[in-house]
């Protein structure tokens, strides 16, 4: 166990090092004209850069002279909020559908579910977002399609997660701000969750099919267990770890898509922040984004790895092997 943790941490440090080098190269490239001691060696400059990063001095934005770290974190928190809501919705819808499709393979409903999943995969996210922005006007649904929250509310940034911040600011606006924010999130998160739903249905169905083919399920039938008992006692627990593992690998794709959706809906977040920074020539936003977003993905994948090991004894077996 300790050995495993050590190996994971090892991986964390090496990957973090590579990331920081990439970020350093980008910073160096974007500010090569303004760097004070350009004559110093690369290694010294890197050490200096890292010490500044570790002290929280990530540089200032050239647009409004705000500290980059704060700007990046605030933007990314709002992206995460979108991802989180979409992820929860997608899981609630997709996991039961995927399980159903996997258990009733080649039935009519399975084909229906898989067709929906295929269509969801083939729809380009940005296009779907554009079409969705038309919906409120076409169908007459009173949902906002622009921005993250109505400008009438002045929400102080506390955590960066606007939903939380609106709750914290409940003294001034009661829950109006909260619901306003929620309304702004509905359409973007449904677009994102459609992509997630297709992924999760696919993964769940595949995983369930694999488990249903396994010998221990046959043995469970031979024991005289009913289908329901088999599914609940043997199938679900064994089908879950591969799904989580695969979703972990999708994390960066999900965040990419979330950023595109933000841009279409002009929802404040890392997508809009990065795009506007690049258009204004504030290239320091790129290394900041790499460090924040990839750092987040790195930490969460290691967290998921450890979680998987705790919930799945099969994974634990591999600890002894190598």
């Amino acid at each position: 166990m300790l050995n495993y943790l050590f190996r994971r941490l090892n991986l964390l440090f090496i990957t973090a090092f590579i990331l920081s080098v990439i970020a350093f190269i980008l910073t160096y490239w974007s500010s090569k004209n303004t760097l004070a001691d350009a004559d110093a060696g690369y290694i010294i400059q890197y050490v200096k850069y890292m010490s500044a990063i570790l002290q929280g001095e990530w540089g200032l934005s050239s647009i409004d002279q705000q500290p980059m770290l704060i700007k990046g974190l605030t933007a990314f928190a709002s992206t995460l909020e979108l991802c989180f809501i979409a992820f929860i919705t997608a899981n609630i819808i997709a996991i039961p559908l995927g399980i159903f499709a996997g258990l009733n393979r080649n039935s009519l409903l399975d084909y229906l579910i898989m067709t929906i999943a295929l269509i969801g995969l083939a729809l380009p996210v940005f296009w779907l977002a554009v079409i969705t922005t038309m919906l409120p006007r076409l169908l007459g649904i009173p949902l906002p399609i622009d921005g993250g929250i109505s400008p009438v509310f002045e929400i102080p940034v506390v955590s960066g997660f606007i939903l939380l911040d609106t709750l914290l600011a409940a003294d001034t606006y009661q829950l109006d701000a909260f619901f306003n924010r929620l309304a702004h999130l509905i359409l973007p998160s449904s677009v994102l969750s459609l992509f997630l739903i297709t992924e999760i249905i696919r993964l769940t169905r595949h995983s369930i099919t694999m488990v249903m083919k396994s010998n221990y399920v046959k043995a469970a039938y031979a024991k005289g267990l009913s289908r329901k008992e088999i599914v609940f006692r043997h199938v679900l627990k064994n089908a879950l770890p591969p799904i989580i593992h695969q979703l972990r690998l999708q994390l960066s794709t999900i965040i990419s898509f979330a950023m595109v959706i933000e841009i279409v809906f002009s929802l404040q977040g890392s997508g809009v922040w990065l795009l506007s920074s690049i258009k204004e020539g504030d290239y320091l936003a790129l290394p900041t984004a790499i460090l924040i977003i990839s750092g987040f993905i790195l930490l969460s994948s290691i967290f998921i790895d450890i979680l998987l090991m705790i919930i799945s004894p099969i994974k634990r077996k591999s600890l002894y092997v190598d």
Binding site: N215, A219, G224, L225, R233, K237, P313, I314
Partner: peptide, 21 residues
């Protein structure tokens, strides 16, 4: 009937036991 009247023992028994239980 299964498990009560007929029971089966398989070859490669380990793969017939649920690995997560």
């Amino acid at each position: 009937i299964m498990g009560k009247e007929i029971a089966m023992i398989f070859q490669h028994p380990r793969s017939y036991l649920d690995p997560s239980k």
